[in-house]
Write a protein that binds this DNA or RNA. Structure first.
Lengths: 218, 218
DNA sequence: TCTCGGGTACTCTGAATAGAGTACTCATCG
DNA sequence: CGATGAGTACTCTATTCAGAGTACCCGAGA
């Protein structure tokens, strides 16, 4: 209970949903799902209710009424406070204007590349490329479906952005595979050697002052 | 204590470090720092020791010796087991071959765009573009420094990838700003209208079946 | 009528984390 | 020679979170 201020973007999603009209948490969740926002913001109930409690504690939202339909669990409807609206705008402003470092899993993977033999890596990169292509095809299909439903692009920009990133990744993955295979990746000789000798697995060499012209620091 | 199997890539980093030679956790941390891997894998002590404990429990690493230097705290040196090496390779294989959905904060921001007025968003996007450019300049400087130190590209691919993604993002940010400013973004009319009327802030319209030709579902 | 799946609306629990704190050493500088 | 600051090597704690679980309702089909 209680969220590190501005850590979880789900809190922002809640604030913005409530800026439309008062809702109870479950309704927020279904709204986000309907609008496909759960593709961009991690959403699960455990976090949702924690986030809502924290927003209430910070005075950004207040409970408005709790209704009971039949013997279903109580629904607590929340509404946004003025402070909440301001916080939402500030937060969003900040999120748009200032890039933050996200840790992606492929970046992690890339930083451990030398742990596998180069030929294996080429195959794996090719596999990744195939999967990325498949994802792009799927995304395009979805795109089409959505335009047919006449939902303007404005409400779909995050998906567009995802596609742009995926295309850039695909490009890079292909290029890297080609460079390893073609032997043009600097460091490949050492890399292949390590795995050929079947030596104890080494991940990275000492900063490696080059072969031909050494010591040029004077 | 105990890590959801394969959730935290830091565990992979530990396995791969130990595949080089036995180390104690703190040494793993400094090694990762030296090699700049903490730019790609989230690293902090709290997680490090938890992750190490979990790897031990899973039999992927074993304590080899605990030495004490002076009255400094004990250092427990761990080494990789055979199972650990296999797990490292499997995990890495998987990470390279299979894309996973990462939730980035800019994607979240984009999905809430309509909550701010369009002119404000244009300014914020321009600001972001400037910052991205600055980051790219910095990255290029670092790149140069590293090549001068003759560290082969192989050990730097993750940084290269980050640059590729940043460039793609910059492109997209600029394009989006232009399209909003130029009025060519579909949905802009509605967006501007909402914020002009100063109506209660609304984030998204009902799926909006277009103006001219409606109902085409028969 | 029974029951089965699917939807509503949360609640609980056990991990997993981030980041600060601890407790010591060693080099340096006035 | 004492203070200061950087470095070593963890440990602790308060959150935070993911996912499963609970308890109910409703409609359709056998």
């Amino acid at each position: 209970m209680a969220v590190r201020n501005r850590s979880n973007p789900l809190a922002l999603a809640v604030l913005i949903c409530l800026s439309e009209r008062p809702m109870h948490p479950y309704e927020v969740a279904t709204t986000l799902r309907q609008r496909q926002k759960h593709e961009s913001v991690r959403l699960n109930y455990g976090s949702l209710y924690a986030v809502v409690a924290s927003l209430e504690k910070r005075g950004l939202i207040v409970p408005q009424a709790t209704k009971r339909a039949g013997r279903l669990p109580e629904r607590t409807v929340y509404r946004l406070t003025d402070a909440g609206l301001i916080e939402a705008h500030d937060w969003l402003t900040d999120l748009i204007s200032t890039p933050v470092k996200d840790f992606t899993s492929f970046e992690a993977a890339l930083s451990f590349l030398p742990a596998l033999p180069p030929e294996a890596v080429v195959d794996l990169l090719r596999e990744r490329a195939l999967r990325l292509e498949a994802e792009l095809v799927q995304a395009a299909a979805l795109q089409e479906l959505v335009t047919q439903q006449r939902l303007p692009r404005l409400f779909w920009v995050e998906e567009e952005f995802r596609t742009v990133l995926r295309e850039a990744e695909l490009d890079y993955v292909r290029r890297l595979a080609r460079e390893i295979e073609g032997g043009t990746l600097e460091g490949l000789d050492w890399w292949a050697e390590i795995h050929r000798t079947g030596a104890e697995p080494v991940w990275e060499p000492p900063p490696l002052a080059a072969g031909a012209e050494a010591a040029a620091d004077a």
